[in-house]
Design a protein around this nucleic acid. Structure first.
Length: 985
DNA sequence: GAGCACTGC
């Protein structure tokens, strides 16, 4: 069953046309549905034995239907056991078929009527939302004068800021040139350095022979360079075309091979040899020189062991190492058009446009720096793809990227940002009715499907950075592929780095691949000779090795997390202190997402002359930010990765070896300003045999609650057969469906309910949005919004610097309120708001200002959406029981009770623990609810709230039965521990 | 008594 029918059915025009016949059609459909479900019941009953434990998903689904259907007829007391169980136990559960009572026909009629009424209401709600959106657009049009003024002001401000930004930019450019020059002279530098060492350490052993050797090597390299310049030209010509996948089918690596083969025409062997020689020349502590060099290291490094690296490969660069970057030259001409023409994509303009005209879907393969993101949408604009009010969308995985790229394109086109060119990200919509080039985050385009399921106002959709495989891009693929089928005039561009283009092509029905060369300097890759046991120690030693032996250029080290980074920085600083003036100055700078902004900014300050900067970073430096001047990359080969266990609903963050793709991305960071080097702290063998080819896509290691809700609200019912590029685990989808059913977002037929449609409007997890909707009933939406906003900034509220641990912990305890962590969060936010959202207040209370500001943004957005989902703003005026009950309405799925052997989750009977940072850590209430379950050293519940078991029956009677909530051990419990604290509220 | 990579709506 093609998915397109589902989406197409959601297109507004059609819904309006259908309206008169609606009721009749509904009734007919209801009857059909009813008949069908009865038949299904019989089917699955008789087919029971045939469906083994590994029955097809279709069969499972039918069983599920039957199951849900059956449940409806049974006593309510029996229900929840079934819901909480996944496919496996269903067989057991239905083995004893309670008689299918036709006696309950009335009951069935009633629920059926309710269901239909709910669907009606849901559609009416969706229509109202649509109408409101339309009104809002009209308002914008009316207010266009005011808006234009505001935009002009905004633009003026930006222009000024641009000018300000220009100076450091120019400084950067000149520094780039300087570094390129330095690179050219690296052997001279080496000589100078050797001379330095001679003076410093008085070692006379630096022989003439050694210098003669260097001079010889330099000559060899000059020859090699000339040769490469010629070879480069040839390569450019060779890649100057796009190819159809048919030519390469079954040979996925072919694209790369072509470049290799064709660039290596005559003299290839000699070139390789010369390159090897060149490698040896720049190899300061490789295996070959090891013996000669060792003595000197020991003088500096004190350590007996230094790490041996072997140069094993080179990441091909497209940029001639000796030439300064073209863009720098062009910049001097101060001509934007010249810059545009200088980009690698420019020569391909016509060919590219022809290819786009001829094919609906085109995969564009190009490295960063090829100009594809900024230029292609402009080409399309120039070619007339935005006529008749049509728009071009270009998606980015990150907000900053969408913003900065849009700003640059606006500048290149000489228009105000927000007019013809705009961007659209969460909390910030810088577009107007005139906007035709729209840069946006991928999640934003996904949200647009809710209001415009066929993307009717877009003529082109370009999904950029597709290789990153974010959750949102992956979902977009499925939806766009579907939309493209019934909108043949829609053009789809998928832009990716060299990785995986064959797979994208295959997914989009063998779409052609268009290759654009990038602009990057070559990077030499070095591996260790033997595996390193302690990679942190190895990192520190290697950094010092590089510092002492290598020409200028900053170092970037990739570690897994804050703790490691802090440790490494400490060790480095310690060693530097001990070495004192024996080595040149080494600036050690940490960077990770949770580092306060002012500390983060330090890594962008230029390195003082004579010193060297070493940036110790998490994965944040792999894609999210680029640091100028990095020549050396040190890669231990690990990263922290989230994984999700759908059985327990538990996520964990574990240190795992990174993928080859990730390793290459890291290496590429060394080749952005000049030829660089990447030192990998593992062996070449490990790279070849132990690393995965690519990182597991996010969609396969995360919970999918809101994705399922979104797809359901787009009318996609059959999720098991949705066209995923890489399908998520079956269990993950099943758990998401079950949770949505329990939350009342889906009815027993798996259809979206009114409540579910509302939940889909809120950009938060289903349980959180359920909690927000429930706040209406308990008249505490003000408080609940705050709690929701605070929960959605990830545990980064409290700042805990190492040197002030005691103060920080005290400050945190001061916020504690009886009842639990949710109320503590509410308390923090309220006090902050009372301080006038002060940053000083944050500083004094060891609260992270950035997180609070984010919480405020989220809260404001949710407040706006509350009106959209027709929930009024009300406050409980300090009656926290109502707040806690509203939270329970969303999180009744996440409950735990205290037993004699500690906490157990109510449904899965899994042993869990209160996180030590929780305000309830020492209180151990009998019943509690948790926001999330994480596996670190133990299974911890993070953000817990004390509840009363009776509330569970109140908020989720369909999910809990009274018997289940009785406490058999109640009387045996010690008196103080686990006492329900009624006086709290 | 633990210790949370990175995004995004």
């Amino acid at each position: 069953m093609p998915m397109s029918c589902h989406i197409y059915r959601q297109v507004p025009r059609k819904a309006v046309v259908e309206k008169p016949a609606r009721v009749a059609e509904r009734e007919a459909r209801a009857l059909l549905e009813k008949n069908r479900s009865y038949k299904l019941l019989e089917d699955s009953e008789s087919g029971e034995e045939a469906v083994g434990s590994n029955g097809s998903s279709l069969q499972k689904k039918r069983k599920r239907r039957k199951h849900l259907r059956k449940k409806h007829q049974e006593d309510e007391e029996e229900e929840e056991e079934e819901v909480s169980e996944s496919g496996k136990r269903k067989t057991g559960g239905s083995k004893s078929p309670t008689e299918e009572k036709p006696a309950s026909e009335d009951e069935w009629e009633r629920t059926e009527r309710e269901r239909l009424q709910d669907l009606e209401e849901r559609d009416a709600f969706a229509e109202r939302v649509r109408q409101r959106d339309k009104d809002r657009t009209r308002n914008v049009l009316e207010r266009s004068d005011k808006k234009a003024y505001e935009e002009a002001q905004k633009r003026l401000k930006m222009a000024e800021e641009d000018r300000k930004a220009m100076v450091p930019e120019l400084r950067k450019k000149s520094r780039r040139e300087y570094l390129a020059k330095r690179e050219r002279e690296k052997l001279e530098d080496l000589e100078a350095e050797l001379a330095d060492e001679e003076v410093l350490f008085g070692d006379v052993e630096l022989s003439r022979h050694e210098r003669r050797e260097l001079k010889y090597k330099r000559r060899v390299r000059d020859l090699a360079r000339e040769y490469r310049a010629a070879g480069e030209q040839e390569k450019l010509e060779a890649t100057n075309r796009y190819h159809m996948p048919k030519e390469t089918r079954g040979q996925p690596a072919r694209a790369v091979d072509i470049v290799e083969e064709e660039s290596g025409a005559p003299g290839e062997e000699q070139r390789r040899w010369e390159e090897a020689q060149l490698g040896a020349a720049s190899l300061k502590f490789g295996a070959r020189d090891a013996a000669a060099q060792e003595a000197k290291y020991q003088l500096v490094l004190e350590e007996d062991e230094t790490i041996e690296f072997v140069r094993a490969a080179q990441l091909q660069g497209d940029e001639e190492p000796s030439g300064p970057p073209l863009s720098a030259q062009a910049q001097q001409k101060e001509s934007i058009q010249a810059v545009r023409r200088s980009l690698p994509v420019f020569p391909f303009r016509e060919e590219l446009l022809t290819a786009i005209a001829n094919h609906q879907v085109l995969i564009i393969e190009g490295e960063t720096g090829s100009g594809k993101t900024t230029q292609i949408p402009q080409y399309l604009f120039e070619e007339g793809y935005t006529k008749k009010g049509m728009k071009i969308a270009c998606t980015q995985p990150r907000r900053v990227a969408a913003m900065s790229v849009a700003a640059r394109v606006a500048r290149e086109m000489g228009v105000k940002l927000g007019n013809e060119v705009g961007y659209s990200i969460r909390f910030e919509d810088c577009t107007s009715e005139r906007t035709v080039l729209r840069y946006m985050t991928d999640g934003m385009l996904l949200r647009e499907f809710l209001s415009e399921p066929d993307l009717a106002s877009y003529s082109v959709v370009m999904v950029d950075e597709a290789h990153e495989r974010t959750l949102h891009t992956d979902i977009l693929f499925g939806l766009i592929k579907d939309v493209a089928r019934f909108r043949p005039e829609l053009k789809v561009l998928v832009a990716s780095a060299t990785l995986d283009t064959a797979r994208f092509s295959a997914f989009f029905d063998d779409a052609p691949v268009f290759r654009i060369p990038g602009r990057r300097f070559p990077v030499d890759i070095f591996y260790t000779k033997a595996p390193e046991a302690d990679y942190l120690e190895a990192c520190v030693v290697s950094v010092l090795q590089i510092h002492v032996t290598q020409p200028p250029g900053d170092i970037l080290v990739f570690l897994t997390g804050q703790e490691e980074i802090e440790a490494a920085c400490e060790m480095l600083q310690d060693r530097c202190r001990r070495l004192g003036s024996k080595i040149r100055e080494l600036l050690v700078l940490p960077i990770y997402a949770n580092l306060p902004s002012d500390m983060q900014a330090r890594i962008f300050q230029p390195t003082p002359p004579g010193a060297r900067k070493v940036v110790v970073a998490t994965n944040i430096a792999e894609t999210s930010l680029t640091i100028e001047g990095i020549i050396y990359v040190l890669d231990p080969g690990f990263c922290k990765q989230k994984s999700y266990n759908p059985r327990t609903g538990m996520e964990s963050l574990t240190v795992t070896p990174c993928s080859k793709a990730s390793a290459n991305q890291r290496a590429g960071r060394a080749g952005r300003v000049a030829a660089g080097k990447c030192f990998r702290l593992y062996t070449a063998w490990a790279y070849q045999h132990e690393l995965e080819e690519t990182t597991v896509p996010e969609i396969q290691r995360t919970s999918l609650g809101n994705v399922v809700l979104l797809l359901k609200s787009l009318g996609i019912h059959d999720l098991m057969h949705f066209d995923f590029l890489d399908p998520p685990p079956y269990e993950t989808l099943l758990l998401a469906l079950e949770q949505l059913y329990a939350l009342g977002a889906l009815n027993h037929l798996g259809e979206l309910t009114t409540s579910g449609r509302k939940m889909a409007e809120l950009p938060v997890d289903p349980m959180l949005s359920k909690m927000i909707l429930a706040s209406e009933k308990y008249s505490c939406s003000e408080e609940i919004l705050t709690v929701a906003a605070m929960l959605s900034v990830n545990n980064s509220i409290f700042y805990r610097p190492k040197d002030k641990v005691v103060h920080a912990d005290n400050a945190r305890v001061n916020f504690f309120l009886p009842g639990g962590d949710h109320l503590v969060l509410l308390n923090v936010y309220t006090q902050w708001a009372e301080s006038g959202y002060s940053s000083q207040w944050c500083y004094e209370n060891f609260v992270q200002f950035r997180s609070m500001r984010r919480a405020r943004d989220v809260r404001e957005q949710l407040e706006g959406l509350l009106e959209r989902v027709e929930v009024g703003l009300t406050s409980c005026q300090g009656d926290y029981v109502r707040v806690r009950k509203a939270i329970t309405s969303g999180y009744f799925y996440h409950t735990a009770r205290l037993t004699r052997s500690g906490y157990r989750t109510v449904k899965q009977q899994q042993t869990v623990f209160i996180h030590p940072n929780s305000s309830l850590f020492e209180q151990q209430p009998r019943w509690l609810l948790y926001h999330e379950l994480v596996l670190t050293t133990k299974e911890f519940m993070r953000q817990v709230l004390e509840i009363e078991s009776s509330w569970l029956l109140e908020v989720a009677p369909h999910y809990y039965k009274a018997k289940e909530l009785e406490d058999p051990h109640a009387k045996k419990m010690p008196k103080k521990v686990g006492k329900t604290r009624e006086e709290l509220g």
